[in-house]
Amino acid sequence: MIRLAIVDDQALVREGLALILGAEPDIEVVAEFADGAGLLRDPVRADLILLDLYLPGADGVATMRQLRAGQPEAKVLMLTTVGSAADIQRALTAGADGFVLKDATGAELAAAVRGAHAGVRPLSASAAELLWPRPGPAPVAADLGALTPREREVLDLLGQGMGNREIAAELALAERTVKTHVSNVLAKLDVASRTQAALLARDLPPRQGP
């Protein structure tokens, strides 16, 4: 079970995040705070902190640095509504364990929480797009032709923001088998990360037939 604390100055956002993520069978929301001062004043034993980048007083990066001074093992997934490449890079350089924008789907957000907890350093698709804008077209047919039907299914689910566990459940596969398929997809599409593969998948036309 992943013990999660949420820090966001907007009550409605906090409640929505707690409702969405708390419904996941492996995530427990153990605390909610309106600002970084509350988190630092009342430290909670959480596995992961979902921390808004823009907070009243000290922002998320400053809060993360203060938190880590006392809890160096604390994992932090940074969150914001409207970000920029500079924001994302600043947070990651400061040591954030991942970065998501609030336009992420519930599945994408849950996958990011699991990924950050596992040490993957996830980025939501929209955050990755800010860091690596794509001026060129979607992958050519020859690239997709190298994928097996099962690998194409995995690619489609990556594009929906699913993590390995969700893909395994969707396709009735072992999680280790999904990891192998993901590795093959990255190699065949010549992309560096599953996030980049997900960005490519979003632009693909629907598959025709099985």
Rank of each mutant, 00 (worst) to 15 (best):
L79V: 15
L155S: 04
E129R: 12
A96T: 03
T80P: 02
G57V: 02
P210G: 12
L40C: 01
L101Y: 05
L53S: 02
V120K: 14
D97N: 15
I2F: 13
L39I: 04
T105K: 08
L51E: 03
F33T: 02
A127S: 15
P133M: 10
K179P: 03
L199Y: 03
P139N: 11
G209V: 04
A104R: 06
E153N: 13
D203R: 11
A110Y: 04
R14N: 06
A69E: 02
A198R: 06
V13T: 14
I6Q: 00
E129V: 06
M64T: 01
V30H: 03
K188M: 11
D47N: 13
K75P: 02
L199G: 10
A18E: 08
Y54T: 09
V30K: 03
R114P: 08
L109V: 05
A62P: 01
G161K: 03
A96G: 02
V178I: 10
N164L: 13
R207C: 00
A138W: 07
K102D: 08
A174W: 03
P149L: 07
A46M: 05
L4K: 06
A192C: 05
R90P: 01
I2Q: 08
T148N: 12
A146M: 10
V140S: 14
R152L: 15
D87L: 08
R3F: 03
E166H: 11
L19P: 01
A104S: 15
E73I: 02
R90S: 12
A11P: 12
L92C: 05
K179W: 11
A94Y: 04
Q208C: 06
D203V: 03
A138G: 12
T63Q: 01
P137G: 13
P149Y: 07
A118S: 11
D35S: 13
Q208R: 13
D190W: 05
P206W: 04
L123S: 09
L200E: 15
G60Q: 00
E175A: 10
L158H: 07
A138D: 11
V178E: 05
G119C: 13
E108C: 09
A172Q: 13
V76G: 02
P56K: 06
E15I: 05
A201Y: 02
A118F: 04
H181F: 14
V82E: 11
Q66V: 01
V100C: 14
D143T: 03
A146C: 10
A138R: 10
